[in-house]
Amino acid sequence: MRDLFRISLRYGLIGSALIIIMFMVFYFSGENPLQELQMFDLFIIPIFIFFGLKEYRDRYNGHLLQYWQGMTAGSIVYLTIGFVTALFMYVFIQFDTDLISEHVAIMLKGLEDTQTKIVEEMGADSYIESYEKVKATTASDVILDSLVKKIIIGFLITSVASVVLKRKQLPITKK
């Protein structure tokens, strides 16, 4: 059980470090990292969950993985990634408060660009409501949204990876 926790935490911290590095790369290249990292999570989280489970199964658990072990390890990985990156974003946003206003401006521009389509499909009231919600976005909204998305992605991927990598010890048959 100790190896399960240790391996999962290591993969979670490495995944967090990679997301933080990409955050900084986007930030220093002039892009808004809050906007750009949303798609990056779809690649990082599954990779680290899968390889974390695989390493535990193959190196530390005798090529066996039960479903509960996979779910436990995967949960530790994605929760670590989610909470460490959320904490980093919170601290970083305290130093650069313009990130949120830039993020909101980008989202408002996207809404304005698709205004006619939204009004046609869902009505003017829906567009106005969406516009006001986006306009009122705060730092805690962005951080919480990022955390919840990481948790949802992680849970779904962990469920699948736990089933795919699951192996049980075969019963001993008498001859």
Rank of each mutant, 00 (worst) to 15 (best):
L165I: 09
K117T: 14
L18G: 00
E121C: 06
T80Y: 01
Y127W: 05
L4Q: 07
L108Q: 14
A136Y: 13
G70A: 10
L65P: 10
I76F: 06
N61K: 12
E112H: 15
D58F: 03
V163S: 08
L42D: 03
I106A: 06
D125A: 07
I47E: 11
I118T: 13
Q66S: 10
A86V: 11
I152G: 00
V25E: 08
L165E: 04
D145C: 07
V119M: 06
T72N: 11
K175Q: 14
A73D: 03
A139H: 03
D96N: 06
I76G: 00
L144V: 15
E31N: 07
K168V: 09
F83H: 05
F51T: 01
E112P: 09
W68A: 08
V119S: 05
Q115N: 07
G82D: 02
T158Q: 02
T72W: 07
V142D: 04
I76C: 05
S126Y: 12
I44M: 06
P171W: 14
L34N: 08
A139I: 14
L53W: 09
M39D: 01
S126H: 10
V163P: 03
I153E: 01
I157D: 04
L64N: 13
T85D: 04
E121Y: 14
A73P: 06
Y27M: 03
F51I: 02
I152F: 13
I128G: 00
S126G: 04
Y11E: 01
S146M: 10
S126C: 05
Y67R: 09
R10C: 03
F40A: 04
A17N: 04
Q69W: 13
R59D: 10
I152V: 10
I47P: 05
A139V: 11
Q94V: 00
E120V: 15
L64K: 09
F92L: 00
F40E: 00
L87N: 05
K133T: 15
I20N: 03
S75I: 05
L108E: 09
A86D: 09
M1E: 12
E120H: 11
K117W: 15
F155M: 11
E129A: 13
D96K: 04
L42W: 05
I7G: 01
A124R: 08
F51P: 01
F88L: 06
F92V: 00
S130D: 10
T138F: 15
Q69N: 10
Y11N: 02
D145K: 13
M107Y: 15
A17G: 07
D125S: 12
L13Y: 04
